[in-house]
């Protein structure tokens, strides 16, 4: 009796201890994002104090040795490259995912799906190498510019977005697809009006996931985008995204005043951009869902 009781107490205690431990782990992990934000803010405070924010964000002059830190070219570089990647990757991914989910014979899907999952795991350096190889293929060279960066980035994002959206499309219940077919809709009409609509939240999540990766991608883009600190005005111009700015200059920044602070501000700006994109996508989605659900 004694023994049984003490065992029970022991088990209860173990349960409680495990719960506490899990709670601590969860709180720690959930607060990492806040730590990162605060850390970057503290470190970039010197430059934020020394220069007005509007000048930092909208000035085009980047000359650290003269103390001029204008992030505009880099912000635009990131937006151009990511935007172009989106324009290329989104239609290709969504159409491919729809085909795999709604049209493709089982055999094709069984072949393509694992391949996509494998490709989604390939390191970005390899995509960058491919970019360089493809660019140096002679003759049809498009040069190191926004277009090259956008294409490489698009190809990097496509497997992730396609694979996740395909899974989402396949969760749409068969009943409602057949309900649409049964009133005489074609398969495409069913896909367009019913499947896409029913899976909007999941697809939005897939797109946000893919694009968060695109915003923050460093190596692959760095290798092909040209790295010229001027805001691009066409896709054939070179660009210099924020990620590349940080990666290229981090080692040599110590000697120049405010330089390290500026680079950490670049990291902060990047973080804020990704956050804003995430939150905006979530809000837009919530709004659309309220109208439909």
């Amino acid at each position: 009796m004694e023994k049984g009781l003490s065992r029970l107490i022991g088990r209860r205690w173990a349960d409680l201890a495990a719960t506490r431990l899990m709670f601590v782990a969860t709180v720690f992990v959930a607060s990492v994002a806040v730590f990162i934000g605060i850390g970057l803010l503290l470190k970039s405070w010197p430059i934020l104090e020394a220069r007005p924010l509007s000048e930092l964000l909208f000035s085009s002059v980047w000359c650290p040795s003269r103390g001029e830190f204008g992030f505009y070219p880099f912000i635009m570089g990131t937006l151009w490259v990511t935007g172009l990647a989106g324009i290329i990757a989104l239609p290709l991914s969504l159409l491919s995912a729809l085909y795999l989910a709604e049209y493709a014979p089982n055999k094709v899907r069984a072949l393509v799906k694992p391949a996509l999952d494998l490709l989604a795991g390939i390191p970005s350096v390899v995509y960058g190498i491919w970019g360089i190889l493809a660019l140096s293929l002679g003759g049809i060279s498009i040069g190191f510019n926004v277009l090259a960066g956008g294409i490489v980035l698009a190809i990097m994002v496509i497997p992730v977005v396609t694979s996740v959206s395909e899974e989402v499309f396949r969760t749409v219940p068969r009943d409602i697809k057949e309900a649409s077919l049964a009133v005489g809709a074609t398969r495409w009409e069913t896909a367009k009006h019913v499947v896409m609509r029913a899976s909007l939240p999941g697809v939005a999540a897939a797109v946000v996931l893919g694009f968060s990766r695109a915003f923050g991608e460093t190596m692959a883009v760095l290798m092909v985008v040209g790295n010229v600190a001027r805001a691009p005005s066409s896709v054939m111009d070179p660009a210099y995204p924020l990620t590349a700015l940080i990666a290229n200059n981090y080692g040599e920044m110590m000697s120049v005043p405010l330089y390290d602070s500026a680079l950490l501000l670049a990291a902060l700006v990047l973080l804020v951009m990704v956050l804003v994109f995430n939150v905006a996508a979530r809000l837009a989605l919530a709004r659309v869902q309220r109208r439909w659900a």
Binding site: P173, A179, R197, A293
Partner: peptide
């Protein structure tokens, strides 16, 4: 026309 076993309203 088809009336299915489970009600299947379209998401609209």
């Amino acid at each position: 026309g088809l009336l299915a076993q489970k009600p299947s309203p379209l998401p609209m």
